[in-house]
């Protein structure tokens, strides 16, 4: 049986095809301004690339912020349910999922059966999301993908005190003017975002094992910060950006 899961995020759209619960296809693409069209294209492209026929798909499940704009799904689920399901499938020891997405972040607690027990979301403010990193990467004139490795070079991380993205930018500009090292600034940015996330974790409470999902999970600097703040080892599942799509496909 082949099932499809599509996660239509604000920045990227991800698709996974599962055959008997094993991943047979995976793709990521920029969402752009027309999530509906992007989702349809990524779905149709999967048939071209795999040779699978549409009629072989037993079920298609959508998740992500763009899910409400599409009408070709069999089921529509929130990212909360899908991230929990996807992470638990990858590792059934996981009891807490931290997802730092492009425009929101969430913490999900899962019970031993893999069901969501509680969750908290930050979608009001860019601080604590991938957007925060992108915005400040632009200020520093570097690519956000360099953040991880740069932060590991930091000797004396700067303290970024502003929670507001706009004010944080002003702080960084002043620090740059005072001669701060880019690696120390990036480390400071990571620390700021991690503190925000750990506050979200506190509101829900966490239980080991803790997993980090979403694109930001690939950033070792943030993982290190969070491990320190939560005083625990954090699991990064394979292909962390696809956890939501995986959870959708598993439904």
């Amino acid at each position: 049986m082949i099932k499809a899961g599509i996660d239509i995020g604000s920045r990227t759209t991800k698709i996974i095809l599962l055959k008997d619960n094993k991943t047979i296809y995976r793709r990521i693409s920029a969402t752009g301004w027309k999530p509906g069209e992007t989702a349809e294209k990524i779905y149709n492209d999967s048939f071209i690339e795999t040779g699978i026929k549409k009629s072989e798909i037993a079920k298609i499940t959508l998740t992500g912020y763009g899910r409400v704009m599409i009408n070709f799904a069999d089921e529509v689920l929130t990212e909360i349910t899908c991230h929990a399901r996807g992470a638990f499938f990858e590792d059934s020891r996981i009891r807490t999922v931290i997802d730092i997405g492009g425009q929101d972040s969430k913490v999900i607690r899962i019970d031993p059966g893999g069901f969501v027990e509680d969750f908290a979301m930050n979608d009001r403010c860019a601080a604590g999301t991938g957007k925060f990193l992108e915005f400040l990467a632009h200020t520093l004139n570097i690519n956000v993908s360099e953040f991880g490795s740069l932060s590991l070079e930091s000797v004396s991380p700067e303290v970024i005190s502003s929670m507001c993205t706009v004010f944080a930018e002003s702080e960084i500009v002043s620090l740059l003017a005072e001669g701060a090292e880019t690696s120390d600034l990036v480390a400071g940015i990571h620390s700021a975002i991690s503190k925000r996330i750990s506050g979200l974790v506190d509101s829900v409470g966490f239980e080991d094992k803790v997993a980090l999902t979403g694109g930001v999970a690939l950033n070792p600097g943030i993982r290190n910060n969070l491990e320190e703040l939560l005083n625990t080892k954090i699991i990064i599942p394979e292909n962390p950006e696809f956890i939501g799509a995986l959870g959708a496909a598993l439904s």
Binding site: I80, G113, V116, E117, M121
Partner: peptide
């Protein structure tokens, strides 16, 4: 936008309860 965020949270919450009921 904030109202749609509340809707998103409520959706996830009801899903959570129903998933557990179904299991």
């Amino acid at each position: 936008i904030q109202q749609s965020q509340i809707l998103n949270r409520m959706t996830a919450f009801i899903e959570t309860i129903k998933e557990k009921k179904r299991s």
